[in-house]
Design a binder for these strands. Structure first.
Length: 557
DNA sequence: TAACCATGCGCC
DNA sequence: AGGGCGCATGGTTA
C-alpha cells in the first residue's frame, strides 16, 4: 500500500491548510473539524503519514477527540536531526522560513494544544518544509538509514504524546502512606516534615551547632570542621568514610530531604491527577537522541516511589527492559564477532567472563563501561587495555570516536545522527581558529581539556546514540503491535494495552490482565525486529527481561 | 528581585 | 580526572 503524506499547516483564524502530496488540490479546514477529517482518513483505505510542525501541538487534541494516528513526520524534530546529519547537504534545507523552522522550540507542556491562540508556528508551511526535508534525505549518501531514523524519531513523538495523554496509573494513597511512614504527616507549605526536623536537630546537637541547617553546605562544612572532620565536600559517599555518630543521621537527613523535595507531596499535587501521573517528555531532548523529561521527572522515578505505580483493577503492568543494551549495540555496529558472540545470550558480561576475556563478570562490566565512558585510569582503565586486545573492533570503534572528538571532529550514530560541534555543549567558545596556535599556556591547557572532554563525549555519543535509535525502533514497533491486539471495536487507546512509560531501555505497558502474555510476546518480537532493522542479520540478541506485575516496584531488574 | 551557578542526588 | 539527563537547594550576581 502506498503512502499519502498529508501536510498540515496552522492558519490564522482557527483554520488548517491541508496539502496532500498526491497532486490533489490543497484545501482548508476549520480547526474544529480536524479530528473528524483525520479519523476519516485513518479509517479509510489510504495509509496516511501526517506531516506537521510539532507532534506535541497537533496530537493531543486528536487524542482528546478519540483519534489515534498511525504514523507522522514531526518536522521540528526531523529538521533538528537533519541539521546536524553529516550526510546531508545543508544547502537543501535553506529557503522560505528556514530560520523560523530552525528556531522552533518544543511546544510548552502546559499548552499542548492547537486550540490555544498561539502564533508561534502560524504561517509555517508544512508542505514547503516537508519537500525540503524529503529532498535532503533522498539526495544524501545515507538515504535509507536517515529515512528510517526520521520515521523512528517521529513515531517516538507519537509515543511521547500518548504517554502523557494516558498517564502512568498512580495510587496517591500508596505514595502518601510511604511519605508519612518516612517523613511524618504532611507539613504546612514551606515547612519541614517532623522527621526531617528531628534529624536536623540531632545533627546540630551532635556537631555542637544548635539550629544548624543541614541544607546549607557552608554551614555544614564549617560545623564538621569545628569537630575535626575535614571533608572536601559533603557528598553521602564522602560522609560515609567518616567514623562519627553524626554520619548516620546526616545521611538519613540528606536522603529523606531529597525524597521530600523531589517526589514529596508537592510533586503529587503537581503531577498526579485523577489517578494518573502525567509527565512531560521531550523526544531527542538529549543531544545523543535520548529522550529527556521536562516536568515530573518521568525518566528518573526513584525506586522509593515506584510502589505507587499500580495497575488498575483487573489490569497489569508489563515491565520489559533490555539487558546491557549499549554493549550489544556496540557489538552490532562494530561488527565485532567475538563481542557479538557474547551478546547471543541473556548475560553479556557473564558470557565475556566465560569466554575467558576477563576474570569475572564484574570485571567485564567495569571494563566495558569504562571503554564507553572513557575511563583512563584505575581498575577500569586497566581492564580496558586488556579487553581491547580481546575485542579489537568493538573497542577500536569507541577509541576511534574518541580520537575524532579530540581532533574536534563530530561523529555520527549508526543511522546518521550527528553529534553537536565541539564547544557548543560546554558553552566555552574556541578563541579563534582551531588550527591557530593557542596564545599562551593557559589557553593551551584549556583547549586540551576541552578536546579531551569532547573526545569522551563523542566516544559515548556513538554508542548511547545508537542505543537510543534501537530503543526508538523498539517502541515504534511495539506501539503498533499493541494497537493490533484484540480490543472492542472503536475502543480508545486507554481501553487497550498501551504504553505508560519509556525510560531509555525499558518500557511499561498497562494492559488488561488476560492480554499480559500477548503484550510480553509483542515486546519481545518488537525487540527482535529493532535488532534486524539496525543490524540486519548480524548474529546478535536483544533479550528482554519481562515482569508482569501489579506494581512497578515488583518488577525485577 | 530575578537570573544564574554550583552542588548533590536520583535515574538510565 | 567516566557519558547522558532533571530537579532541588543555597548562594551569588546583575
Amino acid at each position: 500500500m502506498s503512502e499519502l503524506r498529508v501536510r498540515l499547516s496552522r492558519l490564522p483564524g482557527e483554520r488548517v491548510a491541508v496539502s496532500p502530496d498526491d497532486g490533489s488540490a490543497p484545501f482548508e479546514l476549520a480547526l474544529a473539524d480536524l479530528p473528524a477529517h483525520v479519523a476519516e482518513v485513518e479509517g479509510g483505505p489510504v495509509r496516511a503519514r501526517w506531516v506537521w510542525d510539532d507532534t506535541a501541538r497537533w496530537y493531543p487534541p486528536l487524542l482528546d477527540a478519540g483519534v489515534r494516528v498511525e504514523r507522522c513526520q514531526d518536522l521540528r524534530l526531523c529538521r533538528r536531526l537533519l541539521r546536524r546529519a553529516p550526510a546531508v547537504d545543508q544547502a537543501l534545507l535553506a529557503g522560505d522560513d528556514a530560520e523560523r523552522w530552525d528556531r522552533l522550540g518544543p511546544a510548552a507542556a502546559s499548552e499542548p494544544t492547537l486550540f490555544v491562540t498561539d502564533d508561534r508556528a502560524e504561517h509555517l508551511a508544512a508542505d514547503v518544509e516537508d519537500d525540503r526535508q524529503q529532498r535532503a534525505v533522498a539526495t544524501s549518501s545515507e538515504a535509507g538509514r536517515l529515512a528510517l531514523l526520521l520515521a523512528a524519531e517521529s513515531s517516538g513523538a507519537l509515543v511521547a504524546a500518548e504517554l502523557r495523554w494516558a498517564g502512568m496509573p498512580w495510587r496517591t494513597d500508596v505514595h502518601e502512606r510511604m511519605l508519612a511512614e518516612r517523613l511524618g504527616p504532611r507539613p504546612p507549605r514551606g515547612a519541614r516534615p517532623a522527621r526531617l526536623t528531628a534529624l536536623a536537630d540531632e545533627v546540630g546537637t551532635l556537631l555542637g551547632a544548635p539550629g544548624l541547617n543541614p541544607d546549607s553546605r557552608p554551614e555544614l562544612m564549617a560545623a564538621l570542621r569545628r569537630r575535626g572532620l575535614d571533608v572536601p565536600d559533603v557528598r553521602t559517599w564522602t560522609l560515609r568514610q567518616l567514623d562519627h555518630p553524626v554520619v548516620e543521621p546526616l545521611v538519613a537527613y540528606k536522603q529523606l530531604s531529597h525524597l521530600f523535595a523531589t517526589n514529596g507531596w508537592e510533586w503529587l499535587d503537581t503531577w498526579v491527577r485523577d489517578g494518573r501521573f502525567r509527565a512531560g517528555y521531550q523526544p531527542a531532548g538529549s543531544s545523543t537522541g535520548r529522550w529527556s523529561s521536562d516536568g515530573g521527572g518521568a525518566l528518573s522515578l526513584p525506586a522509593l516511589v515506584r510502589p505507587a505505580a499500580v495497575a488498575d483493577d483487573g489490569w497489569r503492568l508489563v515491565v520489559a527492559d533490555v539487558a546491557q543494551l549499549e554493549p550489544r549495540v556496540l557489538a552490532g555496529m562494530s561488527g565485532d564477532l567475538a563481542l557479538a558472540g557474547a551478546a547471543r545470550g541473556g548475560d553479556l558480561y557473564q558470557a565475556m567472563a566465560d569466554a575467558g576475556a576477563v576474570g569475572s563478570r564484574s570485571d567485564a562490566k567495569l571494563g566495558l563501561l569504562g571503554a564507553m565512558y572513557g575511563a583512563t585510569s584505575g581498575e577500569s582503565g586497566r581492564l580496558v587495555a586488556g579487553l581491547t586486545r580481546r575485542y579489537p573492533r568493538a573497542f577500536g570503534l569507541v577509541e576511534e570516536a574518541a580520537r575524532a572528538g579530540e581532533r574536534a571532529q563530530p561523529v555520527r550514530t549508526l543511522l546518521g545522527r550527528g553529534s553537536p560541534p565541539i564547544g557548543e555543549e560546554s558553552g566555552e567558545l574556541w578563541a579563534g581558529d582551531l588550527d591557530a596556535p593557542p596564545a599562551d599556556d593557559v589557553s593551551l591547557a584549556r583547549q586540551d581539556r576541552l578536546r579531551r572532554a569532547y573526545g569522551r563525549f563523542t566516544r559515548n555519543f556513538v554508542v548511547q546514540g545508537t542505543g537510543a535509535e534501537w530503543a526508538l525502533c523498539w517502541i515504534a514497533d511495539l506501539r503498533n503491535r499493541l494497537w493490533s491486539l484484540p480490543a472492542a471495536p472503536g475502543a480508545p487507546l486507554t481501553d487497550r494495552p498501551h504504553l505508560v512509560a519509556f525510560l531509555h531501555d525499558e518500557v511499561v505497558v498497562h494492559t488488561p490482565e488476560p492480554l499480559a502474555g500477548d503484550v510480553e510476546r509483542e515486546a519481545r518480537a518488537a525487540a527482535a525486529g529493532a535488532g534486524r532493522l539496525l543490524f540486519g542479520d548480524a548474529p546478535l540478541d536483544f533479550p528482554l527481561s519481562v515482569s508482569v506485575v501489579t506494581s512497578y516496584a515488583e518488577a525485577s531488574k
